[in-house]
Design a protein around this nucleic acid. Structure first.
Lengths: 335, 335
DNA sequence: ACGGTTTCGGTAAGCGCTTTCCAAACAGAG
DNA sequence: CTCTGTTTGGAAAGCGCTTACCGAAACCGT
């Protein structure tokens, strides 16, 4: 048992050819190697269980086929769907995706960004809501700028807060459309279950909904950007006891939490209270009552991001807008 | 704008020190560098926006902090939860996870395994059901063996079909327990909605359920291992028109599809028909009726896998068994 | 038969780091 | 002061590849 992996030198020796020949035979360069030698090298490689060292290759070649993807939370279906889209598209290009999850901590985002940068991937994709933290944004840019300056590509899937190509989700607009739709269904007293205020998604969706609502200000309850957050927020809303006939949860996960809370409190959804979400997470398309939401083409967003990565860089950062589509389902019946 | 990233040589030059000194100052080796020089190097590095080239580092050091994770489908919550667990644990160890998704295609699994091997990660984690395809298993082993022989670690999260450390999910036993539980609730005529027969999960869970069922053979309908598969399978089962009072879907996603199909056909769950799943996907914990299922500690399984990765290799492959816990909920009320 | 063009192996120079080894500088002991 | 021991900086040898570049052999047309 070899303590170390077989190298190209080993293969060349085994096949009785030079290093250069072995390299040419194994990696399909433009140079041709005589059939007989070619064969000898290939056989030697198999015999030794040779696997080229990608690190050495990219050093020598000066380029990688790695792609960095940084998400807020990989266990969140929102991100895992985007990741799947990106990974699928990357596969077609022969790129390998390195996935990192910040688990919601911005400091971690910086660390991981550094790590991704060190890996010298061809590009870095940043998925996940930006915050309103100016200094964090500055530090992010400080990492990104030299990376871009040295030929790296960066694409964000978020609010257009960074000076990089971005797949922009029109959160405001989507929420606004949803508000209009819900109002048109006859609802009059809305509440919003929102996430933490520093997340731009939270704000945009909240503000969009408020802007789209024809008259009066919706009640707003904030909590974590998750199922449990929705659950707690809904409980608080019910404790509060105001008159509310519909609830817009900032995303589907929070909406699920809200519905669970309603169930616990004996509030019938949608009879007593309508609920709507945002994202249209596919895993949740079969819940009852079916959730009214704003559909985001998550898989496509991943693909789109790769598209931007592959496109040659432009002076001005590109913005690819993604519009959500309001999907009315049973959870908000006509009043 | 530099066409290339700043190298350590650039930094050394900028700081007016030797390459060796720059390296020692920046990477915290055991060798001490005089405070003044240390400072100069650090400042030069910041000025140039220097980021060490991880590839070069691992070449020189002869080791990486990369970890490969190969899953069947990253958009499946089952895998994304495992991935989150593994990523979290890896973070604590300062390891970076490279995530690859085979999207269900076994050929792709081999390709990606090769890619991961080339990256010379410290370890490779294989998550996802093994198949009964002997030749595929052989090819897998052919990739894995040299990797292990040269000091790489491999851990699987699946059925113990490979000669590597494995986090073994006791699918058979879980399904068996579930069957017993459901029978005890008073059900008499079960059906099984299973996935493709070559996937060992499908078989194990199906066989386990059958084995756990006190009398008679459950009807079996096979389809895809997904929500849509469950949907179609359920439709077929209903078309068939046999007398069935409960349905065990091989996983939660299929169970969701089955419940959707029931709704379409006007079959009330759980009044007319009980439904149970497997996995206890957290996103689905709030559906109504709440789904009876077998809970798998997915996050822990990811952590466990990392644990095995870190443990020093043993002659005999280790097997860490994970037992599912039957969770009875509303979807299978007492008859 | 001969110069000119291909074809195809091999030699060696990097790619960006780490680390061993050496040497200079300095401190403390005798 | 000399001698030994301790710091600390630098030169250079790799790590495993790719890819100019070089030269020998084979092939071509005339």
């Amino acid at each position: 048992m070899a303590a170390r992996a077989a190298t190209l030198t080993d293969v060349a020796k085994e096949a009785g050819v030079s290093l250069a020949t072995a390299s040419r035979a194994l990696n399909g360069s433009d140079r041709v190697v005589r059939a007989e030698l070619h064969d000898r090298v290939l056989r030697a490689a198999t015999r030794l269980g040779y696997s080229p060292n990608a690190q050495a290759q990219s050093m020598a070649r000066g380029s990688t086929d790695l792609l960095g993807l940084l998400v807020n939370d990989i266990s969140d279906p929102y991100f895992s769907t985007i990741a799947a889209g990106l990974a699928g598209a990357a596969e077609e290009q022969g790129l390998l995706v390195m996935l990192c999850s910040t688990a919601g901590r911005p400091e971690r985002e910086l660390e991981l960004l550094g790590a991704l940068r060190r890996q010298r991937g061809r590009a870095i994709v940043l998925a996940g809501s930006r915050t309103n933290d100016r200094s964090h944004l500055r530090e992010l840019a400080a990492q990104l700028d030299p990376f871009v300056a040295s030929g790296g590509r960066v694409v964000a899937i978020s609010e257009p807060k960074l000076q990089v190509d971005t797949v922009v989700v029109e959160n405001r607009r989507g929420a606004q459309d949803l508000a209009a739709e819900i109002a048109a269904l006859g609802y009059r007293r809305p509440a919003i279950l929102t996430g933490p205020d520093h997340l731009l998604v939270s704000r945009d969706r909240r503000d969009g909904f408020t802007a789209g609502w024809p008259s009066g200000e919706p009640v707003v309850v904030a909590d974590e950007f998750s199922r449990d957050g929705g659950f707690r927020a809904m409980h608080r809303l019910l404790d509060f006891g105001g008159e509310v006939d519909c609830v817009f949860a900032i995303n589907d996960l929070m909406a699920m939490g809200a519905m669970a809370a309603c169930r616990e409190r004996g509030v019938d959804v949608p009879r007593d209270l309508a609920v709507a979400g945002f994202d249209d997470i596919s895993t949740l398309r079969d819940v009852t009552p079916a959730l009214t939401t704003v559909r985001l083409p998550l898989t496509d967003m991943g693909r789109e991001a790769l598209d931007l990565v592959l496109a040659s860089p432009t002076a001005k950062p590109r913005r690819r807008k993604v519009r959500g589509e309001v999907i009315v389902r049973e959870s908000t019946p006509r009043r």
